[in-house]
Design a protein around this nucleic acid. Structure first.
Lengths: 188, 188
DNA sequence: CATTTTATTGAATTTTTATTCAACAAATTT
DNA sequence: AAATTTGTTGAATAAAAATTCAATAAAATG
């Protein structure tokens, strides 16, 4: 393994540790030294890998943004299965790959209050709300989704998912809900 | 107006200003000097009214906890109208009394990550999840609510509401959703 | 109206945490 | 193996924000 690859591995380890702590305790409540201790490495060495704490956060948000982009390629799936299936996969995946779960939660948190402005802007630019609003409209035309402002429905759907995921992030023992419960919000 | 009353008024003004900023930007992203500037008053004077920033937050959370207690007295209302009615009132009230809205959001945020430990403990001790789980069970027995873990349904219901409220906190223009959308999560 | 108490300010201080740095170790290259 | 580059540490420094404080104004009290 080359020197460069090693460095990348180490960087990834830091990123994953930070992701965990940010999601569990919040960005501001997590000290650089907390991350360093958990990796583990010295506090000073953290700055050999990342310019700053904010830069570290930004890299995470960029990774998340890259993944979020994937969702937008799923708009040819029939509306009636899209949401249920998406949630089923999200929950299933989250159960084994903590990474996916944490990243989902972090992106949502970044879009909201309590993080540096730049992280917010980045996360905000990657919103899936518009994409899914289109899918919801299709479902409405097909008569399978309830009437009402499709964009607002889309916002509420993701807000609910975010709320539930954040709850799960706090309580390891909490089971994932049945996707149908959440999709019921959309169903006619 | 007595000196004491004046002081109480001023304290309240600070609390409301802080509540607004905490909800909009997050606790850690809000500086004491930001609150002072918005009240307005000098930064130093803030400490004439509150021991510390955390103490200020704690007072807010305590106020919220007092209100949260009210919900637990509503458990004799029939399940089929309890949730819809609660949300209707919450959204209606939130529209005119920003206070109620902000307080609801703050309590949820406090229960989650990103705030001092003590605030978390306080907010956590006041959870309504158990109360509403009982109401959901009743609804299930009456056949109007879907089958499944009532406690988990209760968690998901509140998590969804929290998620949606936080979204509204960020976007002033966002309309409140139809309560039925959210209650659909529970309905059989 | 003199005295005491309370309100207020802005600058100085403390605290906390991020960030830099000098020194050294380990690995890589020549 | 000498020289160079990269990794590592822990202590020193800097930056940001909370908190204190001395000084003064305003209000209440006697």
């Amino acid at each position: 393994m080359t020197r460069k690859e090693q460095k990348e591995e180490r960087k990834k380890a830091i990123l994953m540790t930070a992701l965990n702590l940010f999601v569990k305790r919040g960005y501001h409540e997590t000290k650089i030294s907390d991350i360093a201790e958990a990796v583990p490495m010295s506090t000073g060495l953290m700055f050999h890998y990342f310019e700053s704490k904010e830069e570290l956060l930004l890299e995470l948000v960029k990774m998340g943004a890259a993944y979020t982009g994937v969702v937008s390629k799923l708009d040819d799936i029939p509306p009636q299965i899209f949401f249920t299936e998406f949630l089923r996969k999200l929950f299933e995946y989250s159960a084994k790959e903590t990474w996916v779960f944490n990243m989902f939660v972090l992106m949502g948190q970044a879009r909201r209050a309590g993080m540096p402005e730049e992280a917010r802007k980045l996360a905000l630019s990657m919103s899936t709300v518009d994409q899914t609003a289109v899918i919801i409209k299709k479902g409405q035309e097909a008569g399978i989704f309830r009437e009402g402002d499709a964009h607002l429905l889309s916002i509420c759907f993701w807000a609910s998912v975010q709320g539930i995921m954040e709850e799960m992030a706090l309580d390891d023992k909490m089971k994932a809900p049945d996707p149908e419960w959440i999709v019921a919000m959309l169903k006619a």
